[in-house]
Computed example of a mutant assay.
Amino acid sequence: MNTQSPLIELRNVSMDYGSGKDQMLALEEIDLTIAPQDFVCVLGPSGCGKSTLMKIIAGYQQPTTGEAIFQGEPIQGPDWHRGVVFQSPTLYPWLNVKDNVGFGPNIRGLDKKEVDRISDHFLEQIGMLKDKDKAVFELSGGMRQRVALARVLANRPEMILMDEPLGALDALTRLNMQTLIRDLWQENKNTVLMITHDVDEAMSLGNRLIVMSKQPGKIIKTYDLDYTYQALKTNNHRVNIDSTYLEIKNEILDLINTDLNSPASIETSKK
């Protein structure tokens, strides 16, 4: 586990929506620290508040109670230092691939030569430099998600937030994208928080894995893992699925299923 000073701190964060009878508690008393260069994966059942957690860190929402801190300062709103990759690539259809990647640096006022250099660099990292002049509608789903990732990286954010970015991809493309994300994390030294429903994906990418309960979302357990580091050392960049891996995976699945079927959890979610 990374021992540097926290990049992100959530202190007793809760989030509710609505009021009166329609009030719904999405997150309850979340305490979380994320250190620089951590890769944190968040797992939990649908509706447990994973996306709400990400939106609070991104600055899209303010918690009802508690504090969300980035680099020692309260998070007041969205910031290019925290880039977001969504499940559906949010590319600009009127711009070609290269101009999509360079959009952030261009808006920030960098000169054209620097924007071109940055765009070409990250397109080369994702293996799409040869496609830089293509329109985004010409790209496959996996290629569009690569471009969306490169566009976030081009801003050189301190942190990348991913909300199930691979959920809509086919199995083979998803595996290839997992390898790409891991390699980019190692090369660019970003801090990553990734939401996923896939236990294997979380275990193979994250050096930390957080399991959340059914609504209202709480952190049930945190795991420190080294499978992503193991994969980086192999020629094929694959995780070695050994008996320990399977034991951890089954424990995580049992945690989630037990919580889902717990009468106490069901009653709490109705409050």
Score class of each variant (00 low, 15 high):
residue 219 I to Q: 04
residue 37 Q to R: 06
residue 138 E to T: 01
residue 111 D to R: 07
residue 142 G to N: 09
residue 144 R to C: 06
residue 263 P to F: 13
residue 270 K to D: 13
residue 202 A to C: 03
residue 85 V to Y: 02
residue 161 L to W: 09
residue 56 I to Y: 00
residue 17 Y to M: 04
residue 172 L to H: 12
residue 209 L to G: 04
residue 89 P to D: 08
residue 92 Y to W: 08
residue 134 K to E: 07
residue 106 N to G: 14
residue 10 L to E: 09
residue 207 N to G: 06
residue 77 G to W: 01
residue 3 T to W: 14
residue 166 L to W: 08
residue 269 S to L: 07
residue 264 A to S: 15
residue 50 K to T: 00
residue 209 L to H: 13
residue 52 T to K: 04
residue 39 F to H: 05
residue 268 T to K: 07
residue 116 D to K: 02
residue 142 G to M: 13
residue 212 M to G: 01
residue 24 M to C: 12
residue 57 I to T: 02
residue 215 Q to H: 13
residue 261 N to T: 10
residue 235 N to T: 14
residue 216 P to Q: 14
residue 154 A to W: 12
residue 233 K to T: 15
residue 75 I to V: 06
residue 217 G to E: 05
residue 187 E to R: 01
residue 115 V to L: 00
residue 259 D to T: 13
residue 66 G to A: 09
residue 41 C to W: 10
residue 211 V to A: 06
residue 74 P to K: 08
residue 24 M to Y: 09
residue 221 K to S: 15
residue 130 K to P: 13
residue 77 G to Y: 02
residue 190 N to T: 12
residue 145 Q to E: 10
residue 78 P to G: 11
residue 118 I to T: 08
residue 230 Q to M: 10
residue 52 T to F: 03
residue 174 R to S: 08
residue 5 S to I: 15
residue 198 D to A: 04
residue 219 I to D: 05
residue 2 N to P: 01
residue 123 L to H: 11
residue 195 I to G: 00
residue 107 I to H: 08
residue 66 G to Y: 01
residue 94 W to T: 10
residue 271 K to W: 11
residue 180 L to C: 00
residue 10 L to D: 05
residue 27 L to W: 07
residue 11 R to D: 15
residue 263 P to K: 14
residue 175 L to P: 00
residue 234 T to K: 14
residue 84 V to G: 04
residue 174 R to P: 06
residue 173 T to N: 11
residue 169 L to Y: 03
residue 154 A to G: 10
residue 102 G to F: 02
residue 158 E to D: 13
residue 13 V to M: 03
residue 11 R to H: 12
residue 100 N to V: 08
residue 58 A to W: 00
residue 249 K to A: 12
residue 203 M to Y: 09
residue 96 N to P: 00
residue 8 I to A: 05
residue 185 W to G: 04
residue 237 H to Y: 09
residue 135 A to P: 02
residue 180 L to H: 03
residue 80 W to K: 15
residue 157 P to E: 12
residue 4 Q to H: 13
residue 246 L to P: 06
residue 240 N to K: 15
residue 12 N to L: 10
residue 66 G to N: 05
residue 203 M to F: 06
residue 115 V to E: 00
residue 183 D to L: 05
residue 10 L to T: 07
residue 169 L to P: 01
residue 203 M to N: 05
residue 175 L to W: 10
residue 241 I to G: 03
residue 188 N to K: 01
residue 43 L to G: 07
